[in-house]
């Protein structure tokens, strides 16, 4: 991949999630689409303001859970009934109540792993380099107590002057130009 040069976008810093969400809503209303919010903790309303579409992580999680649960149940059935039948206290070989708990555990395990890895596979992580870290205030605040909205330069509506003026109209702490 060739080195990308030039400007990545404009990042506005806010003190409260409310201000950031209001700016995001206005930006979306204004026609901006290639933008993103960066917050120290999940702000669900930001996802709404960005008009996040549904993704398939929940489906992957569900499928993982179903597969994990049925695999564990069938494995136990196979072992107990066909592979190594044992008479345990005179119970039938197919003693399903005893299979439930390991099946339940595997449901949780596989649903959890599917959700985590499905999320990583679909959001492009791990990402060792991101241009936003070139902004010093982003490095200091994004994981502590600041809320950021970044308008990306690839957006057709993006213009260095107008977009800056637009962001500044929301009284952010700062608006910083970020290079690639």
């Amino acid at each position: 991949m060739p080195m990308q040069e030039g400007i990545y976008g404009l990042v506005a810093e806010f003190d409260t999630p409310g201000d950031m969400v209001r700016a995001t809503e206005a930006a979306h209303h204004h026609g901006y689409r290639r933008m993103d919010c960066y917050t120290p903790y999940p702000v669900e309303e930001a996802a709404e303001a960005l008009h996040f579409t549904k993704n398939r992580v929940s489906l992957i999680c569900l499928l993982g859970g179903i597969l994990g649960g049925s695999t564990a149940f069938l494995m136990q059935t196979w072992i107990a009934v066909w592979s190594y039948p044992l008479n345990i206290a005179g119970r039938p070989l197919y003693s399903w109540p005893a299979f439930i708990i390991p099946a339940y555990e595997w449901t949780i395990l596989w649903a959890g792993l599917s959700a985590a890895f499905g999320m990583l596979a679909m959001n492009g992580l791990p990402q060792p380099y991101h241009p936003l870290f070139n902004a010093p205030n982003f490095r200091d605040g994004a994981t502590v107590d600041k809320f950021f909205l970044c308008l990306e330069a690839t957006d057709p509506r993006f213009s260095l002057v107008e977009s800056r003026a637009f962001l500044e109209s929301f009284n952010p702490v700062s608006v910083v130009e970020v290079d690639h």
């Binding site: 209001r22 809503e25 206005a26 003026a165 637009f166 109209s169 929301f170």
Partner: peptide, 18 residues
């Protein structure tokens, strides 16, 4: 005219918040 546009944008968002 652009500035006017942004100005109204600002008023909008504030009105929205209230």
């Amino acid at each position: 005219s652009d500035q006017h546009q942004y100005g109204s944008g600002q008023a909008d968002t504030h009105g929205h918040a209230h």
